[in-house]
Amino acid sequence: MRQFTYERASSPAEAAAAVAKAPGAKFIAGGTNLLDLMKLEIERPTHLVDVNRIGGIDAIEATADGGLRIGALVRNTALAADARVRKDYAVLSRALLAGASGQLRNKATTAGNLLQRTRCPYFYDPARPCNKRDPGTGCSAIEGFSRNLAVIGVSDACIATHPSDMAIAMRVLDATVETVSPGGQTRSIPIAEFHRLPGDTPQADTTLKGDELITSVTLPKPLGGRHVYRKVRDRASYAFATVSVAAVIAADGKARFAFGGLAHKPWRVEAAEAEFGRGTDAVAEAALAGAKPTKDNAFKLPLVRRTLAAAVA
């Protein structure tokens, strides 16, 4: 691990200012992904600003419009187990519980989960070119072992997938990411605009600025309906998604679907949801229009269709 200096921040704006002041600085909360990457020297921060002691961003509270505000520091275990989340946003509880291990969920935070880096094996291998890790060096995955990588929204520069289960549920629920900047300015980013496609700049996973701190994630008022998170993976527990589906199915037959394991961001095509009356195959066809799989991961297209059918069954 490269050397770095360390400080504890006591307010969101102070933390953002501390990161803005030191070139190469990063925030650290749960640390479960950042420290993993620092040990491999894939992440090389010069200064860490510990946000764990900041008060007021570690609770789940009701919002004025009937939704929930989830503090950035709420741990994955606490969020999945919250009585209001279990009752009104079960797809979020289910997605959280489908991810990682008990130990990791006890430490991982709501904000940090959204900021997880890809688990593309080439991103994790410093001996191989990777445009996300070292911009301009090329993509080893496109001609490499790509079984678990993206099938849609890909570019010639990157076919990495976004790894989070939680974010897929946040996307189907239309969550909003609340941030603060060094000057104290706040910003609300709809989850649909938070994660991005790789394009020519795959090094940027999100639209967040480097010194912008997530303070909370808000959920709109409950949608009702049936909530399902269906995850297909290579083993029964503690593995990233090959394909996953977050579904909210209303009593009137309207439905929302978001997909994991397919793209550089949680994949949701609102127009495809209108096809639900014609069956799940019609939804899958519309959601996957324009897919560009590799020979290794073309199996994900029929797998999405089947996973979607199983999710609503």
């Binding site: 360390y6 640390g31 420290l35």
Partner: peptide, 19 residues
């Protein structure tokens, strides 16, 4: 490396002592 911190189990390899 699992230990308990404030009663909760965590991976002690993925957290800094100074935290």
């Amino acid at each position: 490396c699992t230990v308990m911190v404030n009663g909760q189990r965590i991976n002690s390899c993925l957290t800094l002592a100074v935290m």
